[in-house]
Amino acid sequence: MQPQIDVRTQSIFGYELLLKQWTEAGWRVPASFLQVDLAVMSWLLVATTKILGLKVQYVSVNVNREQLMDTQMVQAILQSQKQLYPAKLTVELTEETSTKTFADTAVIPQLRRFVEHGMQVSLDDVGTGNNDYQSIRDFLPLASEMKFALQNFRVGIQDPQIQEKLRVWHAISREYDQRLILEGIETADGAALSDRFGIPLRQGYYYGKPELLRLAGDPLDFTQLTS
């Protein structure tokens, strides 16, 4: 899990749950989340949220469209929100490629169901890949949050085009009264950019690296994730 920081209060307001697996090279992101059994992901989500319920305001979980439409995963998400209350589970809709195709008209009712059960919806990686305005505009009325990822841009963050994209998405977030989290902040330059745009909600190595969360049955020597 990685902390999300509100610099106005200098406090952690949420955690994003990050799935990693142990390899000979250490803890690494799976080559494809589609290779991870949904039953395992569902169990991990329920076990993790049971621990985090009273720690923060929000706990975020990344979900692609295929996972979003899976009955077992949906039940795990609903159970997790019950465990987290009064904190909220934030479902981050990612653009990760799925083995199946789901139209927006199928996805929207599922997102609405989550909102009706007290959860929030986040639109991940806006402004990059397939997540342009036209692609996600039908989801905007349901979303409470958007995330703009600096790490998705290979050129430096001082590039005028990146800053113009950030300006546009910042304006969209205000139009829809949504939180905007600037993620992938790894240096003081990224923090300064956030200051310049007046974005207080931030995530990245500059503010906190991901940490392992020890679950029941895990070895006692679990340590913080360092790679």
Rank of each mutant, 00 (worst) to 15 (best):
V59T: 08
L38C: 05
S227A: 15
E164W: 12
V155F: 04
M41P: 00
I108F: 01
R137I: 10
S11P: 05
T226P: 00
L213K: 03
T101V: 15
V7R: 15
F148L: 09
V155T: 15
K209N: 11
Q72R: 14
W22F: 00
Q35D: 15
V29M: 09
A192R: 12
Q21L: 08
V155W: 08
Q178H: 05
H170D: 11
L19V: 04
G198W: 05
L18I: 14
L166V: 12
F197Q: 10
R137Y: 09
K50S: 07
V29F: 01
V115D: 00
E186Q: 10
L44V: 10
Y133D: 03
L68C: 07
I172R: 05
I157H: 02
P30T: 02
F33I: 11
D177R: 05
S11Q: 12
I172Y: 09
S227H: 14
L182C: 09
A188E: 12
R174Q: 13
A103M: 14
E24P: 00
D195T: 11
K88E: 05
Q120Y: 04
Q57V: 11
Q72K: 14
T71A: 14
R112F: 03
L89K: 09
Q79R: 13
D125A: 01
N131S: 11
R137V: 14
G127L: 11
A149C: 12
I157Y: 05
T9C: 13
P160A: 07
T226I: 14
S194G: 12
A31L: 13
I162W: 04
A143C: 03
T71R: 11
H117D: 04
F33G: 09
I136C: 01
V36G: 08
Q57N: 15
E183W: 03
L182V: 00
L111H: 05
V74P: 04
Q163G: 07
L212N: 09
S98T: 15
S227C: 14
Q79L: 13
T23Y: 00
Q2G: 01
L54R: 15
E116I: 00
A149H: 05
E116P: 01
G198T: 04
V46R: 03
E96W: 12
D221Y: 08
Y85G: 09
L45P: 08
G53D: 10
L38A: 02
F114W: 03
Y58R: 14
R113M: 12
L18G: 06
D6H: 07
G118D: 05
V74F: 08
A39V: 14
G53H: 12
G129C: 03
T49W: 03
I157C: 04
Y207C: 06
E95S: 06
V56T: 13
G118N: 02
K82T: 13
L123P: 01
E186C: 08
P86I: 06
V107Q: 06
K209Y: 10
S173L: 06
H117R: 10
E116F: 02
A31E: 15
E116T: 01
V59Q: 07
L215V: 08
